[in-house]
C-alpha cells in the first residue's frame, strides 16, 4: 500500500490572479485526487493572495506541441504581416481606427 501511495499522479496548477484575468500556469504538484490537488495548490501556490480561483488538471491530460515542430507550427504566421494593424497606411486625418 505505502508503495502505491508514492505514485500519486502529477497535477498542473493554474491560478486566476484577479477577477477578469485568465488562469495562468503556476506550477505542478502531486496529489491522490483532484480535491487534494486543489487543497495542496492553495497552500503551495497562493500563500500570499496570489489568486481568486484555481484549476488543477492531471498532467497526463495535457498534450503539448513538441519543440521540434516549432517551425512547421509557428513559422507560417511569421510572414503574414498583413494580420497586424500596423501593416495598413491610414492617413492621420482619419483619426484613430
Amino acid at each position: 500500500m505505502s508503495q502505491a501511495s508514492h505514485q500519486w499522479p502529477l497535477w498542473e496548477v493554474f491560478v486566476r490572479s484577479k477577477n477578469g484575468l485568465a488562469h495562468k500556469h503556476s506550477g505542478s504538484l502531486h496529489a491522490p485526487d483532484a480535491e487534494m490537488a486543489l487543497k495542496n495548490a492553495r497552500d503551495v501556490y497562493t500563500r500570499r493572495s496570489e489568486g481568486v480561483s484555481i484549476w488543477v488538471v492531471p498532467s497526463s491530460s495535457i498534450t503539448a506541441s513538441s519543440p521540434d515542430e516549432k517551425d512547421p507550427l509557428f513559422a507560417p504566421s511569421d510572414d503574414k504581416v498583413y494580420r497586424h494593424p500596423t501593416f495598413y497606411d491610414i492617413p492621420d486625418e482619419v483619426g484613430h481606427m
Partner: peptide, 29 residues
C-alpha cells in the same frame, strides 16, 4: 506520515470507484 499518504490514496481509490465518469463536458469556471 506514511499512514496519511496511505489513507489519502485509499480514499481517492474509493471515491474514483464510486463516481460515475462525467459524460457531459462543461467549461471550467
Amino acid at each position: 506520515g506514511a499512514w496519511v499518504r496511505d489513507a489519502a490514496t485509499a480514499y481517492a481509490v474509493k471515491q474514483a470507484a464510486r463516481k460515475p465518469n462525467p459524460s457531459t463536458q462543461t467549461h471550467a469556471a
